[in-house]
Design a protein around this nucleic acid. Sequence first.
RNA 1: CGGGAUGUAGCGUAGCCCGGUUAUCGCGCCUGGUUUGGGACCAGGAGGUCGCAAGUUCGAAUCUUGCCAUCCCGACCA
Length: 491
Amino acid sequence: MSKEITARSQDYAQWYNDLVLKGGLADYSPVRGCMVIKPYGFSLWENMRDVLDRMFKETGHQNAYFPLLIPKSFFSKEASHVDGFAKECAVVTHYRLKNDPDGKGVVVDPEAKLEEELIIRPTSETIIWNTYKDWIQSYRDLPLLINQWANVLRWEMRTRLFLRTAEFLWQEGHTAHATSEEAVEETRRMLDVYADFVENYMAVPVIKGVKTPSERFAGAVDTYCIEALMSDGKALQAGTSHFLGQNFAKAFDVQFSNKENKLDYVWATSWGVSTRLVGALVMAHSDDDGLILPPRISPLQVVIVPIYKGNDQKSAIDGKVEVIVQELKAAGIRVKYDDSDNARPGWKFAEYEMKGVPVRIAIGARDLENNVAEVARRDTKEKSSLSLDGIAGNIVKLLEEIQQHLYDKALAFRKEHITEVDTWETFEKTLDEKGGFVSAHWDGTAETEAAIKERTKATIRCIPLNNPQEAGTCILTGKPSKERVLFARAY
RNA sequence: CGGGAUGUAGCGUAGCCCGGUUAUCGCGCCUGGUUUGGGACCAGGAGGUCGCAAGUUCGAAUCUUGCCAUCCCGACCA
């Protein structure tokens, strides 16, 4: 009633905002570009974080924490890194406030100016490499495999809830290796971890690829990425993994003695995913009734709603539900029994649909008599009657089925939206009318890439890994090309 | 940073053009009762720096100026 969601077909951006706000994931904050992540949204992020954290540890990484504030001078040490981030850094210049002598409120105390200004990290390469210099002396100290969970701040021109906020939460892995090959292997390994996570937990299919030089991370030799497709046909970079070569090692003088007792610079990687993934999740699966969350990371997997007349029925249902809840919990299911009295069943149904809870179980007196419950799945809205005997096992299966169905559906959508085109006319037409990824030949120059972006707003999302080699001619210039690349308009 | 829109209770809003009682209505909230298989109903009640600041005026939510914030669209970026 009071929580209507704008139809996706009517206004995609507003639909997205409605889902995030009314689905209880986040709120706007008093500061532009920042947001409050509410308990429900944070729980979702925690589930994502926990799975990733486990995966990082299984691949040999340890967590550490580096500080929020970075000496300004650190940033100037790696030239392209400065270019990439300088224009979006917040700077700390003072360390004290005082009462405004002219009246109410507080002002910055001009006497408390910092000798060296500090920047709030937009990413941590510089402070980390400055530290690694002290940690690494010998090949025996390598590889160094560190991850940190942190917040970062980038002063963005235009922000959107989860997709691009000024402050966001993320993890950043930073590793050091003795050889280039090993570092590249690490870069690719973590890309695989991301793809595994996004596909198998978030149920969002991704394309693994490498960025073109102009889309590369500031300071990287190669940037690998996973690209996902949203339901409006726009692409979204869901994760990146960078091979940094020796750029940061040289900038911060991180050398090690190899087995031959010769000094060499270490080889580096960095890789990250952020709360942006929450936005990706929202846009990948949801519909006009609200969020649709994949069971594996949904804060709640099952909600149980009682339907009763009078206290006698209520307590009979309570008793039965208590047993079911125990069974479901024993099966490892995150379940909530919502027996609150301040909303009626219909209201609860709508509410949990908006929040994307994968499965809803409704139990009334009639069901008790027949020893069944009404089970509704969020993804298809299908309802069925399930026997209460052995219900936990069936719910486990249903959750798996929902997880798979979400992935299959998203994959079918993506397949439908990768279009091979060979002429400029169809290239533009496809972007305008159909959206999605456009697979086309490109002459490999940054100039052509920029010209295409200028004309169509589409960027090269990536050159897919294991890309089939195929002779052709550039979509724009007609020059020879040896492979297709993926273009799309993107978030 | 350019263009557009908006700012009145937790949310959504009326009032503003044309200044004048105690700022409207709905949802939500609190109390009591009846209800409960798809967003219940009755009765009573609480809740407001009308974004902020100046100005005009006997009098400003309403007029003027400045500022702030948010959203959308665009250029830049995870």
